[in-house]
């Protein structure tokens, strides 16, 4: 019962805070004319790319079930939702930073960085599921941080 209450708090509280954050963010951006066509372009592109990550995670989860690992529906949906939302947000931030930088990001470095984040998340998520120890997910933070730093380092060799 207490698990159910915590779940409800997480589900509806998370959604409420998320919507509030989104609404305030849009309000702040509107004041600086931030809700323009570039904003739409960035976030539509981020959402479309995030579907590839969602597809990849669905495939990995299907494989885990195929190999006999039992995963609860709630956990499964939670992972898919997390992958979708996190990849949407991270890609949106990367695209926004790239558009705002005078020095361009190196595409190969961005791909390498995002791959490190995706691979470490998948590996540690599998470890967490198979061992039942969710602390393994925390171990994915250092490689993911390194991946993000690598992706967001501009290409200084390019000059105008």
């Amino acid at each position: 019962m207490s698990e159910q209450i915590l779940g409800m708090i997480g589900l509806y509280g998370g959604a409420a805070f998320g919507i509030l954050g989104w609404w305030f963010g849009r309000r702040m951006a509107k004041k600086q004319r931030g809700l323009d066509e570039l904003h739409d372009h960035i976030w539509q592109k981020a959402r479309s790319i995030s579907w590839y990550f969602t597809l990849g995670s669905t495939y990995v989860l299907f494989s885990l079930i195929l190999f006999g690992i039992e995963i609860k529906a709630g956990m499964l949906l939670g992972i898919i939702m997390l992958v979708h939302m996190a990849s949407w947000g991270i890609i949106g931030v990367i695209l926004s930073i790239n558009m705002n930088m005078t020095e361009p990001l190196k595409p190969s470095r961005v791909k390498f960085g995002i791959s490190i984040v995706a691979v470490s998340l998948i590996i540690f998520a599998i470890l967490s599921i198979t061992t039942g120890n969710w602390w393994f997910l925390i171990a994915s933070i250092p490689p993911s941080t390194l991946g993000l730093i690598s992706a967001l380092t501009p290409d200084k060799s390019v000059t105008d």
Binding site: A29, Q32, R33, G34, D36, E37, L38, H39, S96, M99, N100, T102
Partner: peptide, 9 residues
Amino acid sequence: GVSRQSIIA
């Protein structure tokens, strides 16, 4: 009527 970020991009 756009953001400075758009002009930079």
